[in-house]
Simulated assay, not measured.
Amino acid sequence: MAQKLPPVAPAQYWFPAKTYGWGWGLPITWQGWLVFLAALVLFAGGAFLFPPQEMLVGYVAYEAVIVAALIVVCHLKGEPTRWRWGKK
Rank of each mutant, 00 (worst) to 15 (best):
P80M: 09
H75W: 14
W33S: 10
H75L: 11
P27Y: 07
W24Q: 02
F15E: 05
K77L: 02
V41H: 11
L5Y: 09
W22M: 13
P27V: 05
P16M: 01
L5S: 14
E63T: 03
V8T: 12
P27A: 14
L26E: 12
F50D: 07
A61Q: 06
P7N: 04
A2H: 08
L34T: 14
A2S: 07
A64S: 15
T29S: 13
L56Q: 08
Y62K: 10
A68N: 08
A47G: 12
M55G: 03
R84S: 13
F48L: 15
I28Q: 15
V57P: 01
Y13G: 01
W30A: 13
A61I: 11
H75G: 08
M1W: 05
Q53T: 10
P10Q: 04
Y59P: 00
C74F: 00
P51R: 10
K88Y: 03
P7Y: 05
E79V: 00
A47M: 10
F50Q: 09
F36S: 14
T29H: 07
L37D: 08
P27H: 11
Q31I: 00
M55Y: 11
V60P: 03
A17H: 01
P7G: 03
P80I: 06
Y59N: 12
V72D: 09
A2I: 04
M55T: 06
Y62Q: 04
K88H: 08
V72F: 14
G25V: 02
F50M: 09
A44I: 11
V35C: 13
V65K: 07
P80L: 06
L34F: 15
G46P: 02
L5P: 02
A69D: 07
V65I: 14
Q31F: 02
K18R: 11
T19I: 10
V41Q: 12
T29E: 10
L40E: 14
Y13M: 03
Q53L: 10
L56F: 15
A17P: 00
V72S: 05
G86D: 01
P52L: 07
F43A: 13
Q53M: 08
R82V: 03
W30V: 11
K18M: 02
W85L: 12
V60C: 10
K87E: 14
F48G: 07
L42P: 01
R84D: 00
V35Q: 10
A69C: 14
Y62W: 13
T19R: 14
G58S: 08
P51T: 04
A2M: 06
M1G: 13
R84I: 00
V41E: 14
A69W: 12
G46S: 08
K4L: 13
P27L: 12
K87A: 09
Y59R: 03
L42C: 13
V67M: 13
W22P: 00
V67Q: 08
A44V: 09
V57W: 11
A64H: 06
F43Y: 15
Y13N: 02
V65D: 10
V35M: 15
V73C: 03
P51W: 12
Q31W: 12
G46A: 04
H75C: 01
V65A: 15
G23F: 01
P80V: 03
G78I: 00
G32E: 09
V65S: 11
L40Q: 15
A68H: 06
G46V: 05
A17C: 04
T19C: 03
T29W: 10
L76P: 00
Y20H: 09
A39Y: 06
K4Y: 07
A64T: 13
Y59S: 05
E63S: 06
F48Q: 09
Y13E: 04
I71G: 02
L26C: 05
A68C: 11
